[in-house]
Simulated scan of single mutants.
Amino acid sequence: MRIPYHQFMPVRRKPKGARSSIGVAILALALGVFTLLLKLDMDYDLIPYLDLGLEQPFQDIFLILTVLFFVWFSLRLIGYFIEIAAAPRVGSYGYVRSTWKIISYSIWAIVLSLIFFYSAGGFETAILSIGLIGAALTFVLQKPLLNLMGWIFITYNKMYTIGDRVSIGEVKGYVTDIMAMNTALYEMGGWMQGETFTGRVSLVPNGMIFDMPIYNYTRDSHYIWDEVTNMVTYESDIDMAKKHMLDAAIEVVGDSMQKNHDHYKKHLELHDLDEAIPDRPTLRMALADSGVKISVVYWLPVERRRRIRSEIVERVWRKFSQDSAVEIAYPHMELVKHNPSSEDRKSTE
């Protein structure tokens, strides 16, 4: 079960690309009407002084173009109005757009199949043509077919949808579009530190899902886990260091975790993990060669990860700096000069 994104992110009042969708739809309608008039004139001579003199094959082409333009116009226009009407109720333009893409692709598959059977002239001829064409395309278009199969897997298994934050191979970002051949990501990371947006849109071939691991940060919930780790020296007051780190995390995310605790558990796919979801930050410890590692673990909204992590680190540093009993461990070397006694010198001689 998905969490509506309007609880965390501002909802756009007007879908992106609305003007272009309407423009394309109007152009398709005009071309479709023009083609339909030509087709009717060839059959019934509706337009005086207009005689194209086209044979039957060309008339069939005009009929197919008419159907294609009509379907194009209908899907564009219906999709535009569905996005406007349904997105405010669902809370996510991305979820509505992703669902409509699946429906529109299915309609296109049915329409193109009917046109193919109509053009082939019969069922047996169409089956034979499909076999011959399929064998040729499988050999020539291996990569495009692999990407198409990837799109089918992504859509059917709901690996990710528009609006999800994902990592595919070495590319990380928000999914802005899922097309038949590739997935568009609003890239994060790259040359930027952490998960800051780079401003680039990356196109990832859908076939990569068969070879690369996919990480979806927002599939079942809008929260992810994170931790901040510091190492203090063995001479430090360990209990005081633990208190400083826990207090810093509680000051930043404590109220948010308590407020959204039940909401987070409600949207987990596996409710066996309910007891493992704390309502406040927790501590972990480990021993290292040069100090004690103290980690504070917490969960937070995915889009605020770097900001919250930075704030916790700053608060921990300030608390450590103000407490002389806590010393941060860092790599260094100490030289100890040993002065042997006179007895040691004699024994050596």
Rank of each mutant, 00 (worst) to 15 (best):
residue 340 P to H: 08
residue 306 R to F: 13
residue 6 H to C: 10
residue 158 K to A: 11
residue 189 G to A: 07
residue 53 G to L: 04
residue 323 D to A: 13
residue 275 E to A: 10
residue 122 G to D: 09
residue 16 K to T: 13
residue 314 E to D: 15
residue 249 A to Q: 03
residue 237 D to R: 07
residue 22 I to N: 08
residue 87 A to S: 12
residue 330 Y to H: 10
residue 91 G to R: 13
residue 113 S to D: 10
residue 88 P to E: 04
residue 36 L to A: 13
residue 321 S to W: 08
residue 147 N to S: 15
residue 116 F to N: 02
residue 161 T to P: 00
residue 281 P to L: 13
residue 293 K to M: 15
residue 130 I to W: 07
residue 320 F to W: 06
residue 106 S to E: 03
residue 327 E to G: 02
residue 84 I to C: 09
residue 110 I to Q: 03
residue 230 N to K: 08
residue 324 S to A: 11
residue 114 L to Y: 09
residue 43 D to R: 14
residue 117 F to D: 06
residue 210 F to K: 00
residue 145 L to D: 07
residue 40 L to W: 00
residue 283 L to P: 05
residue 42 M to T: 07
residue 264 Y to L: 14
residue 39 K to T: 13
residue 254 G to V: 00
residue 155 T to S: 15
residue 119 S to V: 13
residue 127 I to E: 09
residue 219 R to H: 12
residue 245 M to I: 05
residue 35 T to Q: 04
residue 129 S to M: 04
residue 312 I to G: 02
residue 29 L to T: 14
residue 106 S to M: 12
residue 254 G to S: 01
residue 180 A to K: 01
residue 325 A to D: 10
residue 217 Y to T: 01
residue 341 S to P: 02
residue 34 F to D: 10
residue 214 I to F: 00
residue 172 K to I: 02
residue 147 N to M: 05
residue 277 I to K: 04
residue 269 E to Q: 12
residue 293 K to A: 15
residue 201 V to L: 14
residue 347 S to R: 14
residue 158 K to H: 06
residue 276 A to I: 05
residue 148 L to T: 03
residue 261 H to G: 01
residue 321 S to K: 15
residue 220 D to R: 12
residue 258 Q to M: 11
residue 179 M to E: 15
residue 41 D to C: 12
residue 48 P to Y: 04
residue 39 K to V: 11
residue 243 K to I: 05
residue 5 Y to A: 15
residue 162 I to F: 06
residue 141 L to T: 11
residue 260 N to V: 00
